[in-house]
Simulated assay, not measured.
Amino acid sequence: MIYALFADMAVADNGSRQGKVRLTKWYSPYTQKERSKVIRELSGVILTRGPKLCNFVEWRGYKVVYKRYASLYFCMCIDQEDNELEILEIIHHYVEILDRYFGSVCELDLIFNFHKAYYILDEILIAGELQESSKKTVARLIAAQDSLVETAKEQASSISNIIAQATK
């Protein structure tokens, strides 16, 4: 089972390691203080590792699986007995879907469209388990969600116009 996902422990262009986490999803209960401590510790562990080292780290009785895509890091914390390669594939699957949706996903996409990134993640994983492995299905669900949002915006806009005209 996946316990947590952290995305975008950013590495600045000048090479400094900032460790700003832009997206987190917790599948186990932790207090805010514990979450901050976990993020700080894992950021320190992952960002200091060399690029040619293995993408799996043992940490506090768990395994941490991470993958770097350009300046973005995606990291998942799993049980010791879970398959690391399967989790690496889930990370890659998530990034491919993000790339399809955003064009080429970057830190700004995760900052300004975090709700979409979370929605996509929720279509792939439920309660820390893989729910949907088909990229086409996820893309279709995201398109349907976007269509619903646009319809709701149009309806809200037309209602606002009606109210504005009525109050004149």
Rank of each mutant, 00 (worst) to 15 (best):
V21L: 10
R100I: 06
I91F: 06
S36G: 14
Q80W: 06
E84V: 05
V38Y: 03
W59A: 06
H93Y: 09
W26Y: 14
V105T: 08
Y27G: 06
S43Q: 09
Y30H: 12
L72D: 04
R49Q: 08
S28G: 12
S36K: 15
S71H: 08
K33Y: 11
L23F: 15
P51L: 11
E96M: 12
L53W: 06
R40C: 07
L53F: 10
Y94P: 00
V21T: 13
G50V: 00
E58R: 14
I46V: 15
I91W: 01
V45R: 11
Y101I: 13
Y66T: 00
L72K: 02
R40S: 14
I91Q: 00
I46N: 00
E96D: 15
V65F: 03
Y66Q: 03
M76S: 05
Q32L: 15
I87R: 00
V65P: 01
C75Q: 02
E89I: 09
F74S: 04
L42R: 04
L88P: 00
K63R: 13
E41I: 07
F56H: 04
K33V: 13
Y66M: 03
L85G: 02
H93C: 07
I87K: 00
P51C: 09
S71V: 06
S104Q: 15
V45Y: 03
H93K: 12
E89K: 11
K63W: 08
M76L: 11
P51H: 07
V45H: 03
V64N: 00
Q80A: 12
Y62L: 13
D82K: 02
I46P: 01
L85M: 14
I78C: 05
Y69H: 13
R40E: 07
E89G: 10
L98E: 01
C77A: 13
H92E: 09
S43E: 06
T24C: 09
V95P: 00
E41G: 09
V38F: 05
D79I: 08
K67S: 07
L42S: 05
E81R: 08
K33L: 14
E81F: 09
C54M: 08
Y66G: 01
V45P: 01
Y94W: 10
E89M: 10
R40M: 09
E84Q: 06
H92G: 04
C77Q: 10
T48R: 11
D79N: 13
R40G: 07
S104R: 13
Y73E: 00
E58T: 15
C75W: 01
V65M: 03
L53C: 14
G44H: 12
Y73A: 00
Y62D: 11
V65D: 02
W26D: 05
S71M: 07
L42Y: 03
Q80M: 15
F56W: 03
L72P: 01
N55C: 07
E34G: 08
H92D: 05
D99T: 05
S36V: 09
E41Y: 02
R22V: 04
D82Q: 07
R49C: 01
Y69C: 08
A70S: 14
E89S: 15
F56I: 14
W26K: 01
E34Q: 15
W26F: 15
C77N: 03
Y101V: 15
Y73L: 05
L72A: 01
I90F: 00
Y101L: 10
R100W: 06
E58G: 10
D82C: 06
E86S: 10
I78W: 01
I97D: 01
T24I: 10
